[in-house]
Design a protein around this nucleic acid. Structure first.
Lengths: 249, 249
DNA sequence: TGTTAATTTTGATTCAGATCAATTAAAGCG
DNA sequence: CGCTTTAATTGATCTGAATCAAAATTAACA
């Protein structure tokens, strides 16, 4: 499933320059850096890695070396218990940074699995720390990214701790909508990459409950559901459904 | 409620040296630093602040300047909604670092409220970032602390998303137990600082359900409850109650 | 392209936890 | 110290979501 070895015989220098120039700017890290700083960062972002749908980017317990910046595709992260219990902790798309949880123990604490064919840039963490010493704005920005992850998690905790099924689904859809919009896609029409079961795991619901909540929102003409294809017909009413909660980040 | 001004006419240099010498080592930050580095860090940890029971360390929306290292006492953090919905996101004790969520937007995203009279050391964040450039092990350690917070939150998400009431309470008690033990207190006997309602908010349960879960565990002779005083009689069985889930951190 | 497997929807039933309500116990406080 | 307020327990009832079950739809793949 893992196909990291498949890249080893490629022209690394080409990939490197590709990372440093054309697309590094699309990642979340280089915000506010000048050209020279981006060049330095580009030298650190060593190479691209492709993960096929269903493949693992990393597994719980595996050694931590690098953060991963998603360049394209869609992934989920999930923690799982000995007793089989599983919890999806997040869905991740282009521009987002994966692996932050692993810094604490130098070991990944969750699985990261591609929900569609994806590409990530590997960022050796030791090198990132090193150059962030000389580029204060990079360090600052990296801290903000970690902090944002904490804030996001608090939002999910609020959702899991105090919302009911329909509110959770509304919140989830609005969150996706906003993230698609930010990336230049439609905020009102998109395809889900995950199953009802994965949505349920993320939202603390069973898949049947998720399905019923979809149907309910459709019956009220707030959304139109065609399997994985979602159309938001009335975003204002969808926001009301959420119970005036602030959108999770 | 806030009594930060009450300290302004105190002898700061004394407080500073007090922070730098006798107790800075107790905080979570100086792990692995040498004496000189601790001295540098001590100069940054500017002064102590006392918060009375019920007082706010910071409020949602207030400007972020400093992290706070808890030197003594017990606090809760909670996010709240316009519609009054409230979610306790954590309980915090000696040695822990508060304010990490605020880095992302330079604004606090939650309230931090003292559950008993508490003392914190204020750590101006800009200065911390500055000196962490020259003390790599401090930077590394700070990153680990942020990462640990993310891992902890994922643990809570697992709890909220997939455990039932009794499992949640068992998990909660074991977590407290372990943290008290780490600080040199009894792991089997302690006083809760929070109400049933606050526990419920943290665990995504109503206070009545929390109370019933306490009673149930007591009926089974796993714990003895006397209002806020908890004695764990059979920690092994309490762990079993959790359903073999890994303890939240 | 046909066959199998996985996913989704919908219905019927059950149950854990919420809600409502009343009592008891503990904590503030003049 | 007694009085008031707040917190905790326990019981009765209700309800939202889980569970069980079956059918329908879609995706995988040989």
């Amino acid at each position: 499933m893992l196909n990291d070895t498949s890249l080893h015989h490629l022209d690394i220098s080409h990939i490197r320059s590709s990372c440093a120039t054309c697309s590094l700017r699309e990642l979340c890290l280089p915000v506010g850096l000048n050209d020279q700083e981006i060049q330095v960062l580009g030298d650190v972002v060593s190479y691209k890695r492709k993960i096929q749908r269903g493949g693992y980017l990393h597994r719980t317990g595996s050694q931590f070396q690098s953060l991963f910046a998603i360049r394209s595709g869609f992934l989920k992260t999930c923690v799982l218990e000995e007793d089989g219990r599983q919890q999806v902790t997040g869905f991740h798309m282009k521009g987002e940074l994966l692996g932050l949880d692993a810094i604490s123990t130098d070991t990944h604490t969750c699985d990261a699995i591609a929900l569609e064919d994806s590409e990530v840039c590997e960022i050796p963490f030791a090198k990132l720390e090193e150059i962030s010493r000389t580029i204060p704005s990079l360090m600052r920005h990296f801290h903000k990214i970690m902090s944002r992850e904490i804030v996001r998690d608090h939002g999910v905790m609020l959702l899991l701790g105090s919302m009911k099924a329909e509110e959770r689904l509304a919140s989830f859809l609005l969150n996706l909508s906003r993230r698609f919009l930010m990336r230049g896609y439609s905020e009102s029409e998109f395809n889900l990459r995950m199953t009802r079961e994965e949505i349920g795991s993320y939202l603390g619901l069973k898949l049947e409950t998720v399905s019923r909540a979809f149907s309910k929102l459709q019956d009220e003409n707030i959304i139109t559901v065609d399997n994985k294809h979602i159309q938001i017909n009335d975003i204002a009413r969808l926001r009301l459904k959420m119970g005036n909660s602030s959108c999770i980040t």
